[in-house]
Amino acid sequence: MYIKINNNHIELIKSANPYLIFATIFVFIIGLYYSLFQSPPDYIQGDSMRIMYIHVPSAWFALMTYSILAGSCVLWFITRNPLFNVVARSIAQVGMVFTLMSLITGSIWGKPTWGVWWVWDARLTSMLILFFLYIAYIFLWQAISNKELASKISAALAIIGFINIPIIKFSVDWWNTLHQPASISKLSAPSIDESMLIPLFIMTIACFLFLVTVSLIRFRLVLIENKMLRTSN
């Protein structure tokens, strides 16, 4: 069960990098074409609903990345395999960027739709807390100079913070919020027309490719960081 990263793995990740970058750009261009040209406006929101094509994937990956982050912190806590610590530190910043993007694009969508940039309802507030959790995780690790201790404290924070994920997910069902409930859920047919699902789907793949590409770059970065920390000690 003990997985160890060797130089062959790193070479493989390195050689995949240019292809991943190319694929990300390619899918983003197709996604942009569909979301800005090849899709109809909404019957109420008009063209402002096009913001959804970047807002929704950002929010999905903000949540997904945090789940992976918390999951690898749990595995690290139990097995103490340093690989899980490296994975957690590789993806944390990408997740933070996606969270920030969903907050900003959501805010820009809220102004023409609701009439305000921001409200303190349960969905928006819990999403802001998620952003702070990411920041806290990243800065705690950087701020504590004893890296063994830093890993423990930041991992503990990430795991406790995971409670926020189901709160974000179900906030729109549990409490009255200004934010609308999910349009796409597994239990029922999506309340989005097919012509609008296509751009959303392509943009989701593009964001996923971005997540993978940058996470792997950061994976290499974190491994070198670790080696340098070891030699400097």
């Binding site: 406006p41 959804m52 009439g115 200004l178 409930p181 989005i192 609008m196």
Partner: peptide, 16 residues
């Protein structure tokens, strides 16, 4: 203060 609350339906006008 009045805020418009949007529902979760997204449809093009022609479909409606």
């Amino acid at each position: 203060k009045v805020l418009a609350k949007h529902d979760e339906n997204y449809m093009p006008p022609e479909v409606i």
